[in-house]
Each structure stands twice: as structure tokens, then as C-alpha cells.
Design a binder for these strands. Structure first.
Lengths: 345, 345
DNA sequence: CTGAAAGCGCTTACAG
DNA sequence: CTGAAAGCGCTTACAG
């Protein structure tokens, strides 16, 4: 039998009481509860999730969807793994488990989400890598499945998201560079349809205009979000005429490839070219000269994601009175040597 | 209602027939099956997994367990994400889904596995980062839960595993270096209890002895499996007296840190020091001189892992007549410039 | 505070 | 080939 029935028989009480004791219901004699908990511990009993799910209509599992495209696999650092600690610390309060759902690269992400939701393997979803037009968002919103998106999108109307403060990063980077006398500032942006590319480049454009610098589309270098992309960006940079005196990178690993290409071209970052990287990255810590970039805590972001997601779920909303507000996640400047020179000098 | 009942009513047949049609049972009229499949497609019906699981006693989900320690998060490349493509291509044949189970760093991996198994969230497990003594393996073996370990261990008796060919890599690396005249060959090995460290160092020792070179424990440099660890290994290397003329690295990202430290020390890889890296890595592709290392296909390894795991499961064994054999996964040498010099020269 | 019973959505012997 | 019914392991109104 090996289920609640067996445990109940062992204790010589009804399965209903066992269930109530295990689930912390108030109407159970404390003495009884103790006996039940002790026996469960001793016999290694844990409720079968399928039984619970079927009865309650919930799985108590939250899914973090990950796209495992070749590009993600080869180049991403463990961004998502970095989030899990924070996510789990919140979910554990409610005995919710986190699973990562890798969408096969040959399956349409939209179909994948539909399948996972229809099968009821998770109660709620955390989406990432949002596209400008993202059918997953429309689907989840229409199906009334709780979800949160890590990233903005034009889709889905009034859904809940958290996104990095690309505007703040772009503005801060441009301000710094302009203050040092730079006027020709290039930017390396992702070549695919991921939404952050649009948001970032737009913020860059507005920041330039705020300083009375005309936006020049030729300075927007479209490359892959990878180390190789950074190398490619460097390659295109040195061919621009006149050459930009500064470059802003939108992806953390680009800096490594860019530096490499600069060495080849005899261009010294921090002297001949100002470089501002994006997110601080352990693997970029060795760069010489040290990279000016932006810092954030993946763990804290995970906490915020989980709390905001739970706030959208009726069963947990009461614990998160701040509600399901979409938020912009700030990053903090880490000044390095890579932009520490003035052009006038 | 929104379940098989509703779909059956819509089609005006019994739920049993609907179920049989959907599950590809042979005893269904082809005409009926077509109608059912069409209606399911149209109405977006997918069987609720909890109902199926409860009835069948299986979840149709396979879990890939990942330890999200700080070290893994900061330094691992997406090794696991690289496996998912191959894993899923096999699992999809049997309509099995893959989920990644990140073990919180503050939870004991052994407890985590117990909880996941007791809750019945997965039918089988893929373990990684096996320790020399690994309680998870003992537990799963005793509980008769199907599993496969990526990595050998002393635990669990006669379980099924796939492991990289550390012996082959070590022998190949030592042979190459000795052929070039090297006699003082250092090795950078992981400082924790992960099993591969033991296997690799042991193979290195035997390879040396095969060439009549005495094994010198001082040349085994214990560092973290990370870029920083590589830097640290370089640091210790230059202090060894007399300095080794070659070094073998056991972790892919070590090379980047090692090169960095060599530049600082004025030691030129490929001229003053022969370097052989471990697994070929996109991020190490830029190194100058190019790194001699070993290549493998993560996708193919994923396929092998999935097929071998399924061979251990009674329900799928018939499809995998090769059976559940433990295997050593070969790596192929990629000759670079980092060891392309002879000592006698 | 506890027990008996219903029922969540499926699949699968069993009858016909 | 199809239908009616049992039952997987739980939780939760409902009675007492």
C-alpha cells in the first residue's frame, strides 16, 4: 500500500486525520499531530504529489522556462542557475518546488508552454528571453495561468514583468562617456528579436539626444550575444570611419571577445577606446584594464521574481501585500579602468 | 469540466474510448480515433498529468538533478543545458518530459533526492557531480528508483553510470608531453571530493609510471574548478622549484585563468610552458596560443545518457536492447599550439 | 477533535 | 470495437 492509508493503519487512526495533521490544519489535537509527524518521519512518508494535485487542482510546482538554443548553451553564463537560489528561498516558504523547463530548440516555445500548461505539470510559469512579440505571453494571459516574465514585451497587454533597468544603464553609460568628452559612442546590441535589444538601443538614443548628440544608426553594431559577438563587434568597430572613441556593450560576455580583438588591432581599452560592459561577470573579472560595468544580485532578483509571481496567485497573494507590480530592476555601477580617461587629455 | 469527460461528451462516446484513442491503443476503430484526435486538437485537450500519474503510477517525467552551489553558478559553463538537447530527443520518442531539478545549495543533495522521489515528481533521475561517497546513489539503488549517474562513484555497488574517459585523456596528454621531452609534468586537479579528481589523478600517475617517470605529489596542484582556480594553479606553478615544463588541466575554464597568470609571470604558453586543457570550450577558443584540448559532443552524450537510462527502466528496456551498460565516454584530441614545442630544442 | 465518504481525472481490466 | 465501472492517493466538506 505504501501511502497515507498504510500510515493511518500504522497509527490506528483515519487517513483524514493523518492528512490534516500533516498539512498543518488547525483542527487536530496537538498530541495526535506529533504522533503523525513522528511516524511520517520515521517511515519516510511523503504525500504522493499526483494524489494531492488531482484532489487540489494544483501541482505545487513552479516552472522556470529556459530556451536551450545553441546560442544560449554555448554562451550564456549560468544566469538562470543564479536565479534559482533566490527563487527557491521564497517558494520553500509555501512548500512549492522549482523545476527548470528546458524548451528543446526544435520545439516552438509557444507550443512547449501550451503543452506544459495543458498537462498541468506546473501551477505557474516564469518566462525568460521575452521577445518583442511573444505568443507565450498572450497564451498564458488568456488561459489565466499565473506567470511572470523576466523581460518586457509588446504582447499580452497588462501582464506582470520584471526587467533590468536598461534605460538606467544606458543613461549612466552615456552620461559617463559624454562627461569624459566622448561624442562618437558605439553600442553593441543583440542581433535577434529579443526585446532587451530594442529597449536598450532606444534608451541609448534618448540619452545621446539629451546631450545634443545626434543618433547615428551606423554606430549600432548588431552582433550575437556572446563572446564571439564581442569579437565581431570589435572587428566592425575598428573599420568604422572615423572610429568611435567609446563602446557600450549589452551583453556580459562580449567584453572578453572585444578585448581580444582590440589586442589584435593594437587598440588599448582604457586608453584608445573607452569600454563599458554590461552586467558584472566572474569570468570578465580578469580583464586588464578592469572593466567598467554594472552589478546586480541574481539571488535578490530571484527573490523578487518569486514574490511578485506569488502575488499574482490568489492562493498566495495575501502573503505579498505589495501586490503584483511590474518593476524595473536596478543595477549599480562598478567603475573600472576601461573608461577611465578623458578625450581632451 | 474541461477534461476527458467533456471531450467524450462532445464526441458522444465514452471516456474509455477517448482515452484508448488518444493513447494509441490498437483496439480502436480508425475512424473513431481520427475523430478523437481531431477534436482533441481543436479543443486543445491534453490529458491532465496528475490523473494519468495517479492511475498509472508513473509521472512520465525524468529529472536531471543539478547542484546549484555558488561554484557551479559562477563558473560552470552550460554543461547541463548542453545535455538537454540530446536527452530530450530520446525522451520525446516515449512522450517523456525532461525537467531540471536544481538542488538548493542550502539543502543536502541526499535529502533533496529523497524528497523528489518520495513526492513522486519524476519516474527516474539523472545524477551529476557524483562524489566518491555518494549517498544519493545508495538511496536510489535501495529504493529501486531508476537512475543513471554521470560519473563514477564508490557507492551503490553495481549501478549504471556513464563517465568521461579521464584515463584516456590523462594517458593521451602524458604521452604527448613525454614525447616532446617533458619529465616534470604538473596537473591541476579539483580540490573538492568530486570523484573525477581521483580518477584523473590516478590515471595521470599510472601514465607517468608507464614512461618510467616517478610520480611527485608536489606536482598535483589542488584548486577550484573554475577560471580563478586556473589562475591559482598558475600562481602555484611558477613557485615550484624546479618549475614544471608542462601542465595538464582537469577543468575546461582553468586555461583562461592560467594563461592570465602566465602573462603576468612572463611565461609564454607554448614556448616556456606546455599546456593541455581539458574539454574544448567556446570561451577558451580565443586563447593565444591556441589550446590543445579534448573535444566531445554534449548532445551525443545526452543521447547516450537517455538511452542507457531508459534501458534500466522495465517499461522501456525493450527499445534499447544494448541494455544498461556503464560506459566510458571518449574524447577526441584537438591539437593546438599550447604544447607544440619540444623541450630538447 | 475525529471518522466516513465523496470525488479530483485519468487508464484499464472486464463484459458484451 | 465500445461502454460501464473500479480505483490510483490524496484532501475536504460533512456529521457527529
Amino acid at each position: 500500500m505504501r501511502g497515507i492509508r498504510q500510515l493511518a493503519k500504522h497509527l490506528d487512526i483515519s487517513i483524514g486525520t493523518v492528512s490534516r495533521a500533516l498539512n498543518g490544519k488547525p483542527d487536530v489535537n496537538e498530541e495526535t499531530r506529533k504522533r503523525v509527524l513522528a511516524a511520517a518521519e520515521e517511515l519516510g512518508y511523503v504525500a504522493n504529489q499526483s494524489g494531492r494535485s488531482l484532489r487540489q487542482g494544483t501541482t505545487n510546482v513552479i516552472g522556470l522556462m529556459i530556451e536551450s538554443s545553441k546560442e544560449t548553451v554555448e554562451n550564456s553564463d549560468n544566469f538562470f542557475l543564479g536565479l534559482t537560489g533566490g527563487l527557491q528561498s521564497v517558494l520553500a516558504r509555501h512548500k512549492l518546488d522549482l523545476v527548470m523547463l528546458p524548451c528543446p530548440s526544435d520545439e516552438d516555445p509557444h507550443e512547449y508552454v501550451k503543452r506544459m500548461v495543458a498537462r498541468r505539470v506546473v501551477d505557474a510559469m516564469i518566462l525568460s528571453a521575452t521577445q518583442r512579440i511573444d505568443k507565450r505571453i498572450d497564451f498564458l494571459a488568456k488561459a489565466k495561468i499565473p506567470f511572470i516574465a523576466l523581460g518586457r514585451s509588446s504582447s499580452g497587454g497588462n501582464y506582470t514583468w520584471i526587467d533590468l533597468d536598461f534605460e538606467g544603464v544606458a543613461a549612466c553609460a552615456v552620461d559617463r562617456l559624454v562627461a569624459k568628452g566622448h561624442r562618437r559612442i558605439a553600442i553593441a546590441a543583440p542581433s535577434n528579436d529579443v526585446n532587451l535589444g530594442y529597449v536598450f538601443v532606444e534608451a541609448y538614443r534618448r540619452s545621446l539626444e539629451r546631450h545634443g548628440i545626434e543618433y547615428d544608426p551606423a554606430l549600432v553594431i548588431r552582433v550575437k550575444s556572446s563572446e564571439q559577438g564581442g569579437y565581431q563587434a570589435g572587428h566592425e568597430l575598428v573599420r568604422l570611419e572615423p572610429r568611435p572613441t567609446a563602446i557600450i556593450l549589452i551583453y556580459e560576455l562580449m567584453a572578453i571577445g572585444l578585448y581580444r580583438r582590440m589586442v589584435e588591432a593594437g587598440v588599448v581599452p582604457g586608453r584608445d577606446l573607452a569600454v563599458i560592459g554590461f552586467r558584472e561577470e566572474p569570468r570578465a573579472r580578469f580583464l586588464q584594464p578592469t572593466l567598467t560595468c554594472f552589478r546586480m544580485s541574481l539571488r535578490d532578483l530571484g527573490v523578487e521574481l518569486a514574490e511578485t509571481l506569488l502575488a499574482t496567485m490568489p492562493a498566495y497573494a495575501e502573503f505579498y501585500p505589495k501586490g503584483a507590480r511590474s518593476t524595473i530592476w536596478p543595477l549599480e555601477l562598478v567603475a573600472g579602468e576601461s573608461d577611465a580617461f578623458s578625450l581632451d587629455a
